[in-house]
Design a protein around this nucleic acid. Structure first.
Ligand SMILES: [Mn+2]
Ligand SMILES: [Mn+2]
Ligand SMILES: [Zn+2]
Ligand SMILES: [Zn+2]
Lengths: 123, 123
DNA sequence: CGGCCACCTTGGACGAAGTCTAAAGTCACA
DNA sequence: TGTGACTTTAGACTTCGTCCAAGGTGGCCG
């Protein structure tokens, strides 16, 4: 555990946090000015490998890093400003995929992304 | 309707088609050798604006272009080889998101991505 | 204590995907 | 035929991400 890794871990803490690698870097630099972009990418990659952080691709640009890896959830995204909320729908979408629609795949996971407009942008 | 646009439209035809822009370009070049990458991007952008083609982001790399825009569907992706199938789950995932989980958003759309291993890769 | 070694960090080069622009080409129509 | 709007093109540029070689750091053992 180096100072650099601690800072990345600190930045990635909280609810509804879904930062891009560059946002993580900016915030890390605020706490440890000499931290490099490469180290941020390395550390994020390690955290993802360890299962402590998830990569999410809610927009079609940069990957986002989600520290909420231990409680399964899905995402609600504002189409205007990009705000992202963690959501917990009821029901099991896996059960909604009939065998006839599985093409012989072994299906193990499902990601759901809801899209809409947040209260801020609606006003 | 120019020759270039016709070729892009021809390439983007069929079931379970989800090509990247560069794949569209490669196949278009096979039919019309002088077509440029910029024109492929321009034409894909227009088709998306017209609602004739959808952008999908099933992997975290390049966007993919989906000509199956008129029948709503979701996607089943092989985690090994990246194969993508169109699927039509039963049920309405929008109904599974309770008001208490909507954070005041006006939710209008939902994307579902199933992940698993295809029969080819399992063998 | 001092040297060694494994590991970590760094900056910059490199690569992939996508956007933008200026210039040239094409085409309908007056 | 000449004009002007629209399209296409090559290549520069931007963004996001990966890779690498060099140097730093810190634990451990003689
Ligand atoms: Mn999340
Ligand atoms: Mn599809
Ligand atoms: Zn918003
Ligand atoms: Zn496969």
């Amino acid at each position: 555990m180096t100072a650099q890794r601690r800072v990345v871990a600190e930045v990635l803490d909280g609810e509804h946090v879904h930062l891009t690698a560059d946002e993580v870097h900016s915030r890390a630099v605020a706490k440890l000015p000499e931290i490099s972009r490469a180290t941020v990418y390395n550390t994020l990659g390690e955290l993802v490998s360890l299962g402590e952080v998830l990569e999410v691709a809610t927009d079609k640009r940069a990957k986002r890093y989600d520290p909420n890896a231990h409680r399964p959830h899905h995402h609600l995204v504002c189409a205007r400003c990009g705000a992202i909320k963690d959501v917990h729908p009821t029901g099991n979408p896996l059960a909604d995929l009939p065998d006839s629609e599985r093409f012989g795949f072994t299906v193990s996971d499902v990601e759901v992304t809801y899209r809409g407009v947040c209260p801020n942008c609606a006003a």
